[in-house]
Design a protein around this nucleic acid. Structure first.
Lengths: 195, 195
DNA sequence: TGAATTACCGACCGATGGGTTGGTAAAACA
DNA sequence: TGTTTTACCAACCCATCGGTCGGTAATTCA
C-alpha cells in the first residue's frame, strides 16, 4: 500500500498529476489497472494521502516548536530549520503538496492547510518582531511568505543524495537571518546548535 | 491575438494547464473551438508563447544588468531587484513558466531556459563572493537557488493591486542581503537608489 | 479439507479532450 | 462589382482516461 502511494507520488511529480494516468501507476507497480483499483478507491485518494503525509510532517514540526520555552526569534529559527528537515525527509510528498493549485475538494483542502501553516509562521514572525529579535521594517506577512518561499523552493532542486539535510538546514537559517552580506561579525544567537 | 494568449494563460494558471481545455479557452473568449483554432495552431503554441513572454523579460533584465559597469555585488542586487519587477509586470506569464514541469518539447525548452538563467545568477554570485561583497561560507550555486527561490515564490501570492512593485522589490533585496535580523546598522551599499 | 477472504485480471463503458473538415458570412481589396 | 482574404461555426473523429464488472487464482483460516 505504501509502495502504491510512493510509486504514484513519484509519477505525479515527474509527469504532473493530471498527466499521470491510473494505467501509468499500475504499470509501474507491475499490476493491472483493475488490481490497482482493488487497493485504492481512486486517483484522488492517492493525492489526498500524499498531501496528508506532507501536511502532517509540517504541522508536527510546528507543534513541537510551539511547545519549546524560549524566545519567539529562536523558535522561528527552529521552525525554519525543522521545516527544511521535514521537506528533505518527505521531499516527494511536500513537492506534490506545493504544486497543488486546482479546484477539486482535495486540492482545496491542501491549499487551506497551507494557508493555516502560513498563519502560524506569520504569527511567529510578529512575535519575534515584537520582542525585538528581528527587523520590523518589513511587514510580518510578507516576511513570512518570502521566508518560506525560500524554504519551499528546495523541492525544485534538492535531492537526498547531495549530503546531509542538516547542513542545508543550517545554510538556509543563516541565509534567512543574516542575509547574503559578508558575515563580518556573525552574531551567535544563543549558541543552541544550529539555530 | 494577445487577448487569446492572455485569456489562455489566466485559465492555465487558475485551473492548471492540463485541466484547461481548448473549449474552456474558446468559451472565455466568446468564440467556438473551431474559431480558436483559426487563430492559434494548438494548445502547445499557447504555452510556448506564454513561456517566451516570461523568459524574454527575465533575460532582458539579465542583459541590462550585465552591461552595467559596477561591482558584481551591486549587479547582483540589481538583478534581484529587476527580476522582482519583471515578475510583477509579467506575473501571469512567469507564474506559468515556473509551474512547468512536464516532458513535452515546449516544457523541456522552458526548463532549459530556466536553467540557463540560473547559471547566470550563479556566476554573478561567484563573482560577488570573489570580490568579497557577499559571504563565502555558502556555496554559490546553493545561494543562487535559495535567492531566486525566494524571488520566484512571489508568483504564489503577489497581486498587482497591492501597491507598487518597487516597494516589494526593495523589501526583497533588503531581506535577501541583510537577512531577517535586526538591522542594527544597515550598510548602505553605494546609495544607488534601492540596490 | 473446505469456506472465506484477498489479489488479481481482461473486457468494457461513458465522458472528455485535442484537433479536423467542410462550409458560410463578412470585410478588405481591386 | 467581383474576388480574395479573414473570422467564424456545427458536426465529427479518434485517442485517452477514470472507473466498473464479472470472473479466476492464490492465500488465509477453521
Amino acid at each position: 500500500m505504501d509502495a502504491v502511494l510512493a510509486a504514484a507520488v513519484r509519477l505525479f511529480n515527474t509527469h504532473g498529476y493530471d498527466a499521470t494516468s491510473m494505467f501509468d501507476v499500475a504499470e509501474t507497480l507491475g499490476i493491472t489497472k483493475s488490481t490497482l483499483y482493488h487497493h485504492v478507491s481512486g486517483k484522488e485518494q492517492l493525492l489526498a494521502m500524499a498531501v496528508d503525509q506532507a501536511v502532517d510532517g509540517l504541522f508536527e514540526t510546528a507543534r513541537v516548536v510551539r511547545s519549546v520555552d524560549t524566545t519567539a526569534t529562536l523558535r522561528l529559527r527552529m521552525l525554519v530549520r525543522n521545516s527544511v528537515l521535514v521537506l528533505a525527509e518527505r521531499l516527494e510528498y511536500v513537492t506534490l503538496l506545493l504544486r497543488v493549485h486546482g479546484n477539486t475538494k482535495v486540492e482545496k483542502y491542501a491549499l487551506a492547510r497551507r494557508r493555516e501553516f502560513d498563519a502560524v509562521v506569520t504569527e511567529l514572525v510578529e512575535e519575534a518582531q515584537a520582542e525585538g529579535g528581528i527587523r520590523t521594517d518589513v511587514d510580518a506577512r510578507t516576511a513570512a511568505r518570502l521566508l518560506f518561499g525560500m524554504v519551499n523552493s528546495l523541492v525544485e532542486w534538492y535531492r537526498p543524495a547531495r549530503g546531509q539535510p542538516e547542513v542545508l538546514a543550517d545554510t538556509v537559517v543563516r541565509l534567512a537571518f543574516d542575509g547574503l552580506r559578508t558575515t563580518d561579525s556573525t552574531p551567535d544567537q544563543g549558541g543552541q546548535r544550529g539555530y
